[in-house]
Design a protein around this nucleic acid. Structure first.
Length: 267
DNA sequence: CAATGATCCTGTCCGC
DNA sequence: TGCGGACAGGATCATT
């Protein structure tokens, strides 16, 4: 499940593979995966790629003529660079065709991933409201405390809210809460500033470590070069039976998703 | 506005 | 062996 470190890893790989190359067209193989903004009427391709940025779990490909491709992998989306593309691949939902004869396949088993072409000036209209980037200084305990004011939902659920902080998913929320010693069932507004300071630090740390490992590969996540990430070797609670201190972990459902936590270490 | 639950979708795994 | 059901989960929409 691509979260911030995985999205950044895919984006880095994509930049390495196609920076400066020209997209000659985008083929669509599944209804709804690829969408063109309503105000773009005629074909705008070919367009050269020039920037590769990320906002939360969204990849933003800057193209000439002030166009932008917004790509979201959701749960099972993958980008695969292919120097010699052939027929449509299994689960291929869209394809970026490059002038060089190469291509980038958008493979997505569960079909939730999205690609949108819009004008760069309109990007905000196609993104939801997103909270601060967790690795930037603007994500800090004071701001988080402010954002959690009056929020009674469990902290686990709140950290998954992209409007609060952008880029976390189930894996890193479970890991950061364990490292912080905070029970995932605690209400957001009841956390002390001291706890929030610890939480913010651990979120930044776990994301930084995961980035250095090229992300976490559980199930089928891969980089664009089909390499797995390595951070799954360092997970402490996600899908585990015991915490690092050998206590039995509990698994509960929160907002429809599984939460792993240690009743002994997390209060 | 906040919180919750259903929804979308398919491959995999488990129990009978 | 085969089948049904549960599960995985990010974001969106509807409901309370």
């Amino acid at each position: 499940m691509p979260e911030l470190p995985e999205v950044q890893t895919v984006l880095n790989g994509l930049e390495k593979a196609i920076a400066g190359k020209t997209i000659t067209g985008i083929a669509s193989y599944y209804p709804g995966t690829y969408r063109v903004a309503a105000d773009i009427r005629k074909t705008v391709f070919p367009l050269q790629t020039h920037s590769f940025t990320r906002r939360g779990k969204y990849m933003l490909l800057g193209l000439d003529g002030d166009f932008c491709l917004i790509i979201h992998l959701r749960m099972t989306g993958k980008l695969v660079f292919d120097p010699q593309p052939g027929d449509v691949l299994p689960h291929e939902r869209a394809r970026l065709q490059l002038g060089s004869g190469e291509a980038v396949h958008f493979i997505d088993i569960r079909t939730f991933g999205k690609i949108i072409l819009c004008h760069s000036a309109d990007i905000q209209n196609y993104l939801p409201r997103l909270g601060p980037e967790p690795l930037q200084p603007e994500f800090h305990s004071g701001g988080l405390r402010q954002a959690l004011k009056g929020r009674k939902a469990p902290i686990k659920n709140l950290l998954l809210d992209q409007g609060l902080v952008a880029g976390l998913g189930n894996i890193y929320v479970c890991e950061a809460l364990y490292r912080s010693g905070i029970d995932p069932r605690r209400g957001g507004s009841e956390l002390t500033l001291k706890e929030l300071t610890k939480l913010v630090a651990e979120i930044k740390l776990v994301l930084t470590e995961a980035l250095a490992c090229n992300g976490t590969s559980v199930s089928d996540y891969r980089g664009i070069d089909d390499k797995t990430g390595e951070f799954q070797n360092f997970l402490q609670v996600y899908q585990k039976k015991l915490c690092p201190r050998e206590h039995a972990l509990s698994v509960i459902k929160q907002a429809g998703r599984s939460t792993w936590y240690c009743p002994h270490c997390q209060k």
